[in-house]
Amino acid sequence: MPLYHFDLVNTKTHLDAGDAELPDDIEAMDCADSIARRVLTVRPEVKNHHYSILVTNEEGEEICRLPIDIIH
């Protein structure tokens, strides 16, 4: 299974949210959504400050960047 990496970012990386072996990019994006929701629960101050969950693959290629501000 591919390895994906997750970071909380705005203009720079603020938190290494870890790695996960997942079957595909779609599962990695779903995982990013779960991480974003947990971040908002623990650190609600990140809302409205242009933070995103950045997902990269093993090669360091960006898979997606999920803006925290779109999470409800």
Results as ranks from 00 to 15, higher is better:
L3S: 10
L3Y: 08
H5W: 12
H5A: 13
D7S: 10
D7E: 15
D7A: 05
L8M: 09
L8C: 07
K12Y: 14
K12I: 09
T13M: 14
H14Q: 05
L15D: 03
D16H: 12
D16F: 11
D16L: 09
A17F: 10
A17T: 13
A17V: 13
G18I: 01
G18P: 01
D19L: 07
D19S: 09
A20W: 03
E21Q: 13
E21M: 11
L22Y: 02
P23Y: 05
I26W: 03
I26P: 02
I26M: 07
A28F: 01
A28V: 01
A28C: 01
A28K: 01
M29D: 03
D30Y: 11
D30Q: 14
C31N: 13
A32S: 05
S34Y: 10
R37I: 12
R37S: 13
R37V: 14
R38F: 07
V39M: 11
L40W: 11
L40H: 08
L40E: 05
T41G: 06
T41W: 12
V42S: 08
V42Q: 13
V42P: 02
P44H: 09
P44T: 10
P44N: 13
P44V: 05
K47N: 04
K47R: 13
K47Q: 06
N48L: 11
N48H: 10
N48Q: 11
N48K: 11
H50M: 12
Y51V: 02
S52I: 02
I53S: 01
I53E: 00
V55W: 00
T56I: 15
T56Q: 12
T56G: 10
N57A: 03
E59W: 02
E59I: 06
E59L: 11
E61K: 08
E62D: 11
I63C: 00
I63N: 03
R65T: 14
L66H: 03
L66Q: 04
L66F: 04
P67R: 06
I68Q: 00
I68G: 02
I68W: 00
D69E: 10
I70F: 04
I71M: 12
H72R: 14
H72T: 15
H72N: 15
